[in-house]
Amino acid sequence: MTGEITTQPATALLVLGCPQVPVQTSIALYLINRLKKAGSVPTVAGNKAANTLLVVADPDRHYLGEVMDLDRVVVQITEKKRDFDRCFVFIHNDAGITYAGTMSAISKAKVYAIIYGEHYEDLQKQIDFPCTTIAAKAVHNPLPLKKALDEVTPWAA
């Protein structure tokens, strides 16, 4: 016994949206990398297609850690079996807003709404729950969204 106090690393949940907008997978991997470098443990939750895009892109799991089914993580948080320190919700459609509002209500995590796509401004106006918004018009080119993320540095919070 050394008497040292051990602290648990911070946890982060990335809630993926429908992967039809290409920047999602790229930004998710980028964010996972930044979170890990900052000492956080990221978990990804999405539907089968969104998760598979990441798993195939990172076969040796250099970036990815735990990957979960989106419905399963909602059940676990709702039933208080699990929670996270930070929750990043990827939003490019109304369903994304719905998931972000849900996470804001069921989780104690600090919620970040990552908004992108052609209609990012309209979606941004629909946010009426507590969260930090990170938004950019990004569809194929991830750089505007990367820049918006870098300005907020949510991994350092």
């Binding site: 948080i77 709702t78 849900t102 209500a105 069921i106 009426d128």
Partner: peptide, 14 residues
């Protein structure tokens, strides 16, 4: 959000 209807936890904006 999270309320159970049938065996499903409903998703939505409160």
């Amino acid at each position: 959000p999270g309320f159970k209807v049938f065996d499903t936890h409903v998703i939505g904006l409160p």
